Computed example of a mutant assay.
Amino acid sequence: MGGKKRIPTPDQLRDYNYAVAGHAGTLCDADGELFIKPCTQTEIDFYQAVETQGFRAFADIMPIYMGELRLSNPEEVPLDDALMGVIAGNGDFKTSKEQIAATIAEHVAKATPDTASDQTTWVPTQGKKIKTDKSVVLENASFGYKKANILDVKLGVRLWADDAPAEKKKRFDTITSQTTHGNLGFRISGMRVYQGSEDESTWDEEGYQIYDKDFGRLTVNEDNVVDAFRKFIFNKAAGVDQDLGRAVCSAFVRDLQRVEQVLASHETRMYSSSLLFIFEGDGDALASAIEKNNEIIERDSAEAYTCPPVSRTNMRLDNRMDSGIVLEDEDDYEDVDEDEDEDDLQLPQIYTLKLIDFAHANFTPGLGPDENILTGVRSLLRIFKELAGEDD
C-alpha cells in the first residue's frame, strides 16, 4: 500500500453522519481497513465505556473503536469527502458516487430506527441483520491477510439477557441444551477455511470451504469438538502443516489467557458475545510472515532498536519463541518515534483474536466477573492447548 491510509477521527465520523446500512449490508472504506457495523445503542455505550470510563484493558481484546455513525438520507451525506465505498446487499462493492447513493437509498428504505424490545412478541431474525439507524466504526480485523481463515465462536452457557422476551429465552435455552453451549460454554457459529479440503468441489469461488451456523448446531458435539477446531487450523491442502498449526495454536493460547485475565478482573455481563479467531490460511504466506516477523525482531534487537507497537490485528507479545513466533512485551515500545512510516514498521499479519458483539453487554459493578462467558473461554483454552501440544 502506497502512503498512509486516510482514517477519519471519531469526531470526524460523527460529523460526517454517514448513511449506513441498517438491514441489507455494511459500509467500509475502499481499502477494506474499516468495518462499519449496524448496532444497538447498548453496543455503542459499551465501546464508549471502554474508551472513557477506565476499562482500557478491554481495548486490547476488542476491535479498535473509531466512532459511531447514524443512518440518514443519502442526499445529506457528503459522499465526495467522506464515503469511499459501500457493500451492497448482494455483496457487490460500490465505489462511484452514483452507485453509493443508490445503494444507500436502498438501505435507508429497508432500515428503521431501534424501538424498545417487545416483551410479549419476539420473532427470530433468522440470521438477518438488525434494523437500526446506528452503527459503530471499527478496525476490520481481517484486513491485511492473503487468505484469512476466520472462525466465530459464540460464548456463554446462557445466551439471553435479563430483558429478553420469554419466547427468546425459551428458544435460546433450547439451543444451549442441544449444543456445546450447555457443558462447554461456547458454540462454533461458523468458519471459513482456505482450501479446507483436498476435494476442490467443496470450495467456493475464492477457494474457501465454508462451515455455516448449522455446522456448530447440528454437527459439532462434545465428542468431536476438538476435531472441528483441528479442521480450522491444520490444513494439508493449503500448506498449513503440523508445525505451523501448532505455532498458531500456541499463539491463540497466549491471547486466550489474556482474554481470560481481562474478563476475570472486570465485572461485566455479556450475552451472545463471540470470540473471532483469524489467521493466515495460506501455508506459504503464513511461514513467510512468521519468518519475516522473526527477522525484524531479531534485527532490531541486535541493533538495540525497539520495534514499535504492532497493530492490534497482529500478535500479542510476551518474549517467547517456543511456538516459532517471536513475541515481545508492549512495554518495550514506549520510546518509539510515532512519526515513523507505519508502512515500513508494520509486521506481517499472522493471527488475530478479538472479543466481539456487545449488543447485550454491560459493565456491572458489584456483580463480580462474568462466569457465564468465562466458562467458554476456559473451555477454548483447554482445546487450543491440546492442539498446540502443550501440557497443562
Rank of each mutant, 00 (worst) to 15 (best):
G2D: 10
P10A: 15
D11G: 08
N17H: 07
Y18G: 14
A19Y: 05
A24M: 14
T26N: 09
A30D: 11
A30K: 06
K37L: 01
P38D: 07
C39A: 11
T42Q: 03
E43P: 00
F46C: 13
F46R: 03
Q48D: 15
F55A: 09
R56G: 09
R56T: 10
R56S: 10
A57E: 08
F58W: 11
F58C: 10
I61F: 03
M62L: 07
P63C: 03
M66S: 13
G67H: 05
E68K: 13
E68F: 13
D81L: 11
A82Y: 07
V86R: 00
I87H: 07
A88R: 10
G91T: 08
G91I: 12
D92I: 12
F93D: 00
T95L: 11
S96M: 02
I100S: 02
A105T: 02
H107E: 15
V108Q: 06
A109K: 04
A116T: 14
T121P: 03
V123K: 06
G127V: 00
K128A: 15
T132D: 01
V136Q: 06
A141E: 01
S142C: 13
Y145A: 03
K147I: 05
L151C: 08
V153N: 02
G156E: 13
R158N: 12
L159K: 03
A161Y: 09
D173G: 09
T174E: 09
I175K: 00
S177A: 15
S177V: 09
Q178G: 12
T179V: 00
G185M: 01
M191C: 04
S197C: 08
E198T: 11
S201E: 03
W203F: 09
D204G: 06
Q209H: 12
D212L: 02
K213S: 05
G216H: 00
G216N: 05
T219G: 06
A238D: 08
D241T: 05
D241P: 00
Q242I: 13
D243K: 15
V248Y: 10
S250N: 09
A251C: 14
R254N: 02
R258M: 14
L263Q: 02
A264C: 02
S265C: 04
E267R: 11
T268Y: 15
R269I: 03
M270W: 04
M270S: 10
S272D: 04
L275I: 11
L275G: 00
L275H: 01
L276C: 06
I278N: 00
D282E: 11
D284H: 15
E291Y: 02
N294Y: 00
E295Y: 14
E295I: 14
I296A: 04
I296G: 05
I297A: 07
R299S: 09
R299M: 14
R299P: 04
A304Q: 05
C307Q: 14
S311V: 06
S311N: 15
R312Q: 15
R320H: 10
R320T: 14
Y333H: 05
D337P: 05
E338R: 09
D339K: 10
D341G: 08
E342D: 12
D343M: 11
D344A: 10
Q346V: 06
Q346N: 13
P348I: 07
L355C: 07
L355P: 02
D357W: 10
H360K: 12
N362D: 13
G366M: 03
P369C: 04
D370N: 01
V377H: 04
L380P: 04
R382L: 11
E386K: 08
G389C: 02
E390P: 04
D392Y: 12
D392A: 14
